[in-house]
Structure formats: structure tokens, C-alpha cells
Design a protein around this nucleic acid. Structure first.
Lengths: 215, 215, 215, 215
DNA sequence: AATGAATGAGTATTCATTCAT
DNA sequence: AATGAATGAATACTCATTCAT
């Protein structure tokens, strides 16, 4: 009986704690998107999350770790989404296109979190040997592998013409990365061009012979 | 005679002044590349430039304006380079490819300045109505127009297949932007893939409608 | 029982906190009197108060707010004193004289704080719509009202001759304000003249129409 | 002939120089009145005066000396005015009243310069043994003497009742000083009360017996 | 006399992080 | 777990003044 009450109590504390941790992350994400990482004081995060400033440092080692968590969560959600998107298509080319589509939809659905990434990609943490660096590399590598998978599948089923798999995966990611930045940085809204972007890739992936020396 | 002496005098003053201003910009660019904008104290810039700290603020309104000047200069050099690169080619497709090549070479030649741009793109200065914002938009627009020029030329001389000019210009810039970031951010060096990247674009630009949905 | 311990605990925290805040204000007031507001670095205030420099800004938004608090506290003490001084006198004239006396004693008792006021009256904070401005206006208005009260009472009990109440209140305050400044600014000590000053006012307040223009 | 041309030339330079010195003082006075002494950079004064910053320091030893000149000029103008005002009146009382009137008109006519004085009375320069201190003391003393003169004259011609001349002179100056401050500092305009103020003084100066103990 | 580039000392303020309670 | 007072290092920027030309 007492044990049950105790458990309930612990559970309650845990719940509260989880709530607070979540509240802090949400507040941080919103503020980072609004003002940028550097321009957001931890005091402000605490205020918006409705907790004391010290509480932030109970749940996170430091301010960087807040950004870390937000970014990693975003990457994980992205990876899960891509995996789902490429699971069902009937061939490799189709899978690539589904992956592209997913990216284009994802950056709109999660626009405020993506803005955090576009604004404040935690560059400095990449070069040092940190847990953060390792975790992030894993994710980046995973995304690369997923594109490689699609491309290999496309090569095997013949839906994609002979290309360098590694280079093409990088090219596709580059295109998406760059498009995302241009979309968020552009002072004027970009035209609707998602279909065009995918057609651009499809043409490239399906055209074997390049004959650019026609006179 | 007197006028000549006077001119020499003025020139001398100007030269001296320019020297210091240039020294400050060079020191700032080098330090921003080494440590990042935020992590570079103005005192350090002054020390490396061999001037007093106050001199920086005699020539530049604030630290931001240093970054502003570095970034704008880089954009101007880039625009000049592109203009030269696309002036001579025999057709539109060739011009596009020359532009792509120029970009790929430029980011290697100016790698440290590009690193400053990739890492510390002054996001905050974009949103407000600042001279910086206006100047930068002009440059971005100019680059877009140069790509549009090439593409239109290619459409007219038949070297490029029917595509949306506007969307395609954005796609090409996205690809280059994204590739630049990946190159500078990637913890592992990217493979040599410049030829592949250009082939990717060429295939897309030269292949008319591909209808892959019908088996 | 637990509540009591808790209260004691809270009280203790509050006390500590109040102690520091008080220490900062005291140190600031002393230094402002010694050297003037502008010539007092916050680092010096912190040193004298025995706290870290940051602690000042934990308790006060900025340096101005230190001056604000000192000045407001001085005004409040003055108002309380005047209220007490004018509470008991048997008639209005007497009340006015007690108010004058109180002022003359007050500026000697609180001479160092009054010096801060005379020297560093925060003019700039008056013109903008600031909390400081509002608070200070309230106090000035309150002092004016207290003089008006005395004068009205004097008119009613006949101890003061027919005069414009509003104008006379301003005149009395002017006289005190000006005397205070002269006293603190004068390079040579003013002669003892408090009795004379009060007699000067008394004569004016008790003499009905003097028509000096007709010989 | 040559001498004449030379003289003209020197005269021209001198004129120019005088013009510049005047322009600097005017610009400084205007800016000090608008923003206060401390908040006015010398660069701003130079800009408004249409001269180079260095030129200020050719004509004035330092920034303080600008304020010094403005203040001294104002005092001199005031003293001249008072002297004229008290020269003609038919008796001492009348002279005092003319002096008071002159002050009241003066602070309205020269309101922006008086504002400089009210705002930024150069307190710090008073305590040290400086030429400024000496000059200013001379002026203050002179004003005091002028009031003393009037009062003595009034005592002799019987227009003023028996009072302490020294104390009364201080009281009158206090009243004017204080009124000036209240007028400039008051957030709401003071009522028209110049006549009342003079009547207040006149009553006091003409009433010999004070009988304030009437039951 | 006039210039204005250069100076560099001087200082308020910010803010992540700690830690006693 | 939660608090929030206290910390103090870190830094951009101001500005009167100098001086070579």
C-alpha cells in the first residue's frame, strides 16, 4: 500500500519533471527561432517555460545542450520520416522522389525548428571531440545512407541510370540543404517550385547519355 | 605645380588611411575565419591589425559593420567572377557550366572568407531594414539574374531544354549553396565530385520531358 | 511548526538579500556624494558594498536606477517629515513656519544625500516618460499639496493674509529650493540666517495689501 | 599699399576665426540646452558648427571651457542687465523690484541658455582652485553686491524696513534661483505669478513689525 | 589657423553557471 | 528536484584630446 503511494509520488515527480524538461525545450526552441541562439538569455527561456533559471541547469548541462537536444530531436524526426517515406515506393527512383518530397514538406511543417537549424547550426561543436559532435555525425551519416539506399535500389531495378552513388547522394542533399536555406533566407518568398525541383532531379537520374557537345 | 603637390599630399593621406582600414579588414577576416565572429574580440582585431582599438571604430560604426564589409566584398568579387566566366562561352549551357565551375573554384580559392560566410552569416542583420540588408539583397538578386541570363540564352540557342527559368535558377543556386555548406561543415572531406555535380546539372538541363510514371 | 521554520527561512533569505541591496544603496549614496554620480564607477560601488559588480545589476536594472532609488527615498523621508511637522501646530501660519524649519533642518541632517540631489539631479530622466519621472512628479506634487494645505488652513483661521494660495506655495518652495542650492553651491559658507528667512516669509504672509506705488 | 592688403588679409582671417569661435559656442550652447553637457559629444558640436573637431580645441582648451564661456557670458549679460535695471529707479525698494523683474524677464528671454545653467551647473569646477572657479565667484559676488546696493539704498531712503541686508540679499537670490529651477524643471507649466512673487517680496521688505503671535 | 585620423583609457552591462538552502 | 541570489569574467563602444600634415 505504502509502496503504491510512494510509486505514485515518484511518478508524479517524474511527470512534473518531464513536463518541465519539455517546457524548457519548447520555450528554448521557440525563442531560438524568434531571436536566435546567442540572443536568447537563459533567463528568458526560464521565464517563458515558467521555471526558475537554475532549473534549466538541472536538466541540461549547459545552454549548448539545449540547442543540441532541439537539433538532435529534429534530425531524428527527419530520419524517421524519411525511412517511412522510402519504405513503400515501387522502385528506387520513386523512393528518391518520395524522400525529396518528404524533405520539402518537412521543412514547411517544422518550419520554426528548421529555422533554428538554418540560423544557428552549432558549427563550433562539430570540430571538437564532443558527444554532440558524435551524435550529430551519426545522424548526418544515417541520412546519407538512406539516400544511398534509394539510389542503389534504383540502380538495381533500373529506374536510375548509371551515376556515382556517393556523389549523387551528396548532390541531392546539397540541393535540399541549399533550397532550405534559400527558402528561409530569401527576403521575398520563393515561387512554388517543388514539382520543378523534383523534375530537375528526376531528369538527371534517368538520363543515361549526356551529349553536350552537339554543334 | 602646387596642385600636383596638393594632390600628392591628399593621395598620401588617403593611402595611409586606406592602409589602416584595409589592415583592419584583413585582420578581422582572418580572425573571423579562425575563431568565428562572436569569439573574436575587437581588441584582438586591433592588435593583429597593429592599430589602436579605437581606430576600428573610427573607420567602422561597429563590429557588425566589419562583417558587413567582408561579406559584401566577397559577394562583389563573386559577382565579378561570374560575369567574366559567362561572358565568353559559345552557348547558354556552356555559360551555366562555366558559372558552376567558377563557383566551385571560388569557394576553394577564397575558402577562408567563404568559411566566414558559411559559419557566421549575419542572419540578424537581414530581418531589419538596414543598409546591410539592402546591399546584400541587391547582390543576391544580381547573382540570380546572372543565372537567369545564362538560362535564357541557353533556351534561345537551344542548348537548354524547356524548363522554368526562374525555378531552375533557384535550383542551381540551391545546389551550389548547399554543396558549399556541406563541404565546409562536413566532418569528413567530401570526395572529389565537381565533374559529377556539373554532369548532374547538364543532364537535367539538356533532357526534355521525361515521363517516368508510365511503365 | 513547519510553517514557522519555513517562515524563518524565507525571512532569513529576505534579510540577507535586503542587506545586500541596502549595502549597495548606501555605498552608492556615499560615493555619489563624495565624487558625483558620473565620476563613480559601478565597480567602486560594488567594492565598497562588499559585493560582486554583477550583484548590483541583479538588484537594479542599471546605474540610473541606483540614483533613482536614493532620490526617491530622500523625497519620501522629506514628505514624511513635513507631514509630521505640520500635524500639530495651532494655526496655518505656524504650520508653514514649521514646514520651513523642517526643510532647513532636513537639508543639514541629510546633507550628503541632499548634496547628491543638488549636484546630480537626474534631469535626463525627467523628460522621457519613465517610471522615474512619474514617481518623482508624484512626490513633487505631494510636497506642493502639503504647502497648499498649510496655507489654506492659515487663510481659514486668519493667521495668513489674503494671498494666492497656489502662487504662494510655489514661492515658498522656490525660496527653499534656491536656498538649498545656494547653501550647497556657495564657495563661502552662508551666514546663519534661518531665523531671518522664516521672518521674511512670516512678514509676507501676515501683511495685507501694501500699496507702495502711491506716495 | 601692400600693408593694407596684408591688414585686410589678417582682418579677414581674424573675422573668420571669430566667426568660427562664435559658431562653436552657439552650437555648443544649443546642444547643451537640448541634450545636456555630458550627453553632447564634441564631434556633434563640430558638426553643427560646421568645423572640424580639432578646430574646437584650437579655440578652447577643453570641453569644460566651452561650458565655462557660455556660463560666464550669461552671467555677464545678467549683471549688465541688472546694473541697467537698478540705475534709474527712484528708491531702493523700486530698485529691488526692478532687479526682480529683470531676472524674471531674463530667464524667459534667454531661456535656452538658462536651461544649460539649470541642467549642468558646473559644480565640479567650483571646488578646485581654477580660473573658472575664480571668475564665477567674482560674478556671483557681483550679483550679490548689486542686491546689497539696492537694499542699502532702500534702507537709507526709508523705502525698505529694517532687515539684515546680507541675509535678505541671499533670500532674494534664493527665491529667484529656486523659482528659475522650478520653472524649468516643472513638468506642468507654472501659473503666471510674477506679479505675485514681487508682491511677496515687497510685503516682506516694507513691513517693519511682525506680529505673528496674535491669538 | 584648420584639419580629421588616430588614440586608448575608461566603464556599464550581460549572462551562463554555481550553489547554499 | 527546484530555486534564484550571487557571481565575475568578458567586451563593445565612447569620446575628449593630440598631433602630423
Amino acid at each position: 500500500m505504502l509502496t503504491q503511494v510512494y510509486n505514485l509520488f515518484i511518478y508524479f515527480l517524474l511527470e512534473l519533471s518531464m513536463d518541465r524538461k519539455k517546457a524548457i525545450l519548447d520555450a528554448a526552441a521557440a525563442l531560438f527561432a524568434e531571436r536566435g541562439f546567442a540572443a536568447t538569455p537563459t533567463a528568458e527561456i526560464a521565464r517563458r517555460a515558467g521555471v526558475a533559471e537554475g532549473t534549466i541547469f538541472h536538466h541540461f548541462k549547459n545552454k549548448d545542450e539545449l540547442l543540441f537536444n532541439i537539433v538532435i530531436d529534429l534530425f531524428d524526426a527527419f530520419i524517421e520520416g524519411i525511412k517511412t517515406a522510402i519504405a513503400t515506393p515501387r522502385n528506387g527512383l520513386d523512393a528518391v522522389e518520395k524522400a525529396l518530397w518528404f524533405h520539402l514538406l518537412f521543412i514547411e511543417k517544422k518550419s520554426s525548428l528548421v529555422l533554428v537549424l538554418v540560423r544557428d547550426f552549432p558549427f563550433k561543436l562539430l570540430n571538437v571531440e564532443s558527444p554532440f559532435s558524435r551524435e550529430l555525425k551519426t545522424r548526418a551519416q544515417r541520412i546519407h545512407e538512406l539516400f544511398v539506399e534509394c539510389l542503389e535500389r534504383g540502380r538495381q531495378d533500373g529506374s536510375i541510370c548509371p551515376v556515382s552513388i556517393q556523389a549523387t547522394a551528396i548532390i541531392l542533399r546539397s540541393l535540399l540543404t541549399g533550397y532550405t536555406r534559400l527558402k528561409f533566407l530569401s527576403p521575398v518568398p520563393l515561387p512554388e517550385m517543388r514539382e520543378e525541383l523534383i523534375r530537375f532531379c528526376r531528369r538527371s537520374l534517368t538520363t543515361s547519355t549526356t551529349n553536350h557537345e552537339q554543334p
